[in-house]
Amino acid sequence: MHRFANPARFLKIANAVLPWAAGLSAVCFAAGLYLGLIASPPDYQQGDTVRIMYIHVPAAWMSMFTYSTMALAAAAALVWKHPLAEVYAKAAAPLGAGFTALCLLTGSLWGAPMWGTWWVWDARLTSVLVLFFLYLGYMALVDAFDDPARGAKAGNILLLVGAVNVPIIKFSVEWWNTLHQPASVFRLGGPTIAASMLWPLLLLALAFQSYFVAVVILRIRAGLAARRVQTLRLGQTG
């Protein structure tokens, strides 16, 4: 992994990956939206509200994936003083916050007609709300110091401490028997969703994932350029 730690080498690879990720995302969004909105049937119990799942579940997966990778990056930054890891965590945070906000919003929009409530303090819902606040807290903290290095370090510690929330989110539906349903895709014994609904879900999940890769590369490029600007400005005044 350390071979990709060099920002110049990383940028070379990232720039090669970028058009493929963007293209894959566009194709998967087009196919996923067609299958999800037009070709797939309404659910026999939930009617057309089941189509909210094709947005809600990928957003939820991405909210946890993004946080997990940020926590790993935080560990790498604290242990090996890896400069790219801090840039990655900072670049990914607004995307993770966006996915989490989308998950919470669509969850409410799905809950209102199907559960009869926009919000309950269910274990799953509450732990995802905590995840959203962790993202916001991290973004506020890294920018709260005059010295960016100190801000990044404080942010990394917050990310590591907050990582305990990720398994809580994942297993909340099994540990506490409250309103949110348990997993139906990643479970022992295989998915319990009909193929006509699993395909749009997986395609949109791939679309979200490749969207994330493409946009996070843009944001890392901006982060590396910002560091360079900072170094040049320090050189001018010093």
Partner: peptide
């Protein structure tokens, strides 16, 4: 209202 708001938010 629920379905299109979800896709609009996304």
């Amino acid at each position: 209202a629920y379905v299109w708001s979800s896709y609009g938010a996304a």
